[in-house]
């Protein structure tokens, strides 16, 4: 099986207006930076973005990168994540946020990734003690299980998942590196279409099956990332 597409532009060609898009990464570590750049260039609007952070700042130049670039380009309608971070100091964020053109759904990090995992696993939801007694519990079903209060959380599915791996083979088997793994293996199985960008593209059979982190079964397209800045 060969799932390789020629460029990041070609990989994101079907991400249209109104799409729900998940992006791997924590801060700027392990983000699909080439696919994000391609989506900025494509200019699709009214996107719902699911990611841990709403972009993050480069410690050297103080500018926002990651999915924050989509906000700067006025492409995002809604963000679902756990830590919007330093984006609040940028007027291109605050203006649509204040006018409610940009909606934020901020949820606990463990709940965020478990909701994604639930969608990937075909589950209807889960009960968690996280958020009990806090504003997070508002409007949610509560249940005492094992003598402890829990709240019901529902799955989070996406039209597209953009993930980044260190190495990938042509059939979509992926291997991550260090803490750049983060959300990537959680999101890869949770979308209708999963696009993986890789630093190193390998032939099928190059990987030891024991060493594969995400099997190609979850991956629709593979692209070799054109350029890696890997900011932090």
């Amino acid at each position: 099986m060969d799932k390789v597409v020629k460029s990041s532009d070609e990989a994101v060609a079907d991400i249209g207006d109104g799409a729900v898009v998940m992006s791997g990464g924590f801060g700027l570590c392990g983000i699909p930076e080439n696919l994000i750049r391609a989506l900025v260039a494509k200019g699709s609007r009214n996107l719902t973005i699911i990611a841990n952070n709403l972009g993050s700042t480069d410690s050297k130049d103080g500018k926002i990168y990651g999915v924050g670039l989509l906000v700067r380009n006025a492409q995002v309608r809604k963000f679902i994540g756990s830590f919007p971070g330093p984006i609040a100091k940028f007027p291109w964020f605050m203006e649509p946020y204040r006018s409610k053109a940009l909606e934020l759904e901020i949820i606990p990090q463990g709940t965020l990734n478990e909701r994604i995992r639930c969608a990937a696993a075909g589950l209807g939801g889960f009960y968690t003690p996280t958020g009990v007694g806090t504003p997070i519990e508002e409007g949610k079903e509560k249940r005492v299980l094992g003598g402890r209060e829990h709240i019901l959380e529902l799955p989070l599915h996406a039209d597209f998942a953009l993930v980044k791996a260190h190495r990938g083979d042509r059939s979509g088997n992926l291997i991550y590196r260090r803490s750049a793994r983060n959300y990537n293996p959680v999101m890869a199985p949770a979308a209708s279409v999963t696009i993986a960008e890789v630093e190193e593209l390998c032939e099928v059979g190059a990987f030891d099956p024991d060493g594969v982190h995400t099997p190609g079964l979850f991956v629709s397209m593979v692209v070799k990332g054109e350029r890696y800045e890997k900011r932090y």
Binding site: S179, A180, N182, P185, V186
Partner: peptide, 23 residues
Amino acid sequence: PDVVNAAKQPVTIVPGGAIVSQS
């Protein structure tokens, strides 16, 4: 850049360390 902490600062991993997914 592939090894950062919760505050997104570059860190190190000690011998015997392990990497896990968010899940």
